[in-house]
């Protein structure tokens, strides 16, 4: 049985088609990432899969349960960590977890055991009786991950799990997630617009404007771009691009005055290139393609690492005021 099986799922808001007939399947124990810019349809897809939003068309099964007809079964079998904190900041860490245990009907003995184990795992056991409002952003996110796992879900949904966290905390959280997947054979479905975060996934679906434009392992996606990336700059970029086109039969791109193109086995290519290039080279670079390059070549635009939109900023502002 697939952990998640999606067929032609779509959803529109008014005139905007947020998700357009997407299909994919996720195996049990897989870490699967949805990579795309803000507004690409990632959160809408998650909300449909976790039964918060009714799909406009198509169907999906999570752990074998239909997301429309078996909503309670779906809910019981999944854990969720949202983009924005959904903790009760007036309650302690332990009280938040206990509330969750009650709400999901976890038997008392198992509940207390899980609370102990999970709080220990995310290194918050010592602070279990502290109110959540005294926690840092990273601690809150760890607590939310612990809470999402309390009722032994088989799939964990993470919507931008490390948004707004510092690199160290992000690495820390990923260590937990890898550990968890091994220990509990957990399937993890996450959305992100961070390229380096997507590297943690077994497979990635690149999503743009509500459509899946590519789906493969991170390495597979990078290879599909066409090998290593050569970048160089010179006085006349247009003429240089023309030379590359004729000499090596590849289509170069010009970005910020730099000429970029992909070649296989760049290490052996580069010495020849430097010798053969007729003009004076100002700089030459060679690197393995990143997912950023993958996204650029698939969609023709860069993933906009856009800041939180205005509404989110407003909400954060209000929360600060009221605390």
């Amino acid at each position: 049985m697939k952990a998640i099986d999606v067929e032609n799922l779509s959803r529109r808001f008014g005139k905007i088609e947020a998700v357009k007939e997407i299909s994919f399947a996720i195996e049990e124990g897989e870490i699967f990432g949805f990579l795309g810019p803000n507004g690409a349809g990632k959160t809408t897809t998650i909300n449909m899969l976790c039964t918060l939003l009714r799909p406009g068309g198509g169907s999906a099964r999570v752990n074998g349960f239909d997301i429309v007809r078996q909503r309670s079964d779906v809910r019981r079998s999944i854990g969720l960590v949202f983009q924005q904190s959904t903790l009760d900041e007036q309650l302690s860490a332990e009280q938040n977890l206990r509330f969750h245990g009650y709400a999901y009907g976890v038997p008392a003995a198992l509940r207390e055991q899980r609370i102990h184990d999970l709080l220990t795992m995310v290194e918050l056991y010592d602070r279990r009786q502290h109110k959540v409002r005294t926690f840092s952003g990273g601690m809150k996110r760890r607590l939310e991950i612990a809470r999402g796992l309390l009722h032994l879900p088989r799939v964990l949904f993470l919507d931008e799990p490390t948004l707004g966290l510092d690199p160290q905390t992000r690495k820390h959280i990923w260590d937990y997630l890898h550990d968890l997947r091994q220990r509990e054979n957990l399937t993890i479905f996450l959305t992100t617009h961070y390229m380096d975060e997507a590297e943690n996934c077994g497979r990635i679906a690149v999503i743009d404007h509500g459509r899946i434009v590519a789906m493969d392992t991170p390495d597979g996606l990078k290879n599909a771009v066409g090998g290593d990336l050569v970048t160089f700059s010179t006085a006349d970029a247009q003429a240089a691009a023309q030379f590359v086109r004729e000499q090596y039969h590849v289509e170069p791109q010009i970005q910020d005055g730099q000429v970029r193109f992909h070649v296989t086995s760049g290490e052996t290519f580069l010495p020849d290139f430097v010798r053969e290039f007729p003009q004076r080279l100002l700089s030459v670079g060679l690197r393995r393609p990143t997912l950023e390059d993958v996204f650029l070549s698939l969609t023709g635009h860069e993933i906009r690492d856009s800041e939180l939109d205005a509404k989110d900023l407003m909400r954060q502002h209000m929360q600060r005021w009221q605390r």
């Binding site: 918060l52 809910r75 949202f82 904190s85 959904t86 009760d88 900041e89 999901y104 909400r315």
Partner: peptide
């Protein structure tokens, strides 16, 4: 609703 906790309640299997 404002602080997000409503979402935790809404996705719980409690109706």
């Amino acid at each position: 609703r404002e602080f997000g906790f409503l979402k935790e309640i809404l996705v719980a299997p409690i109706g």
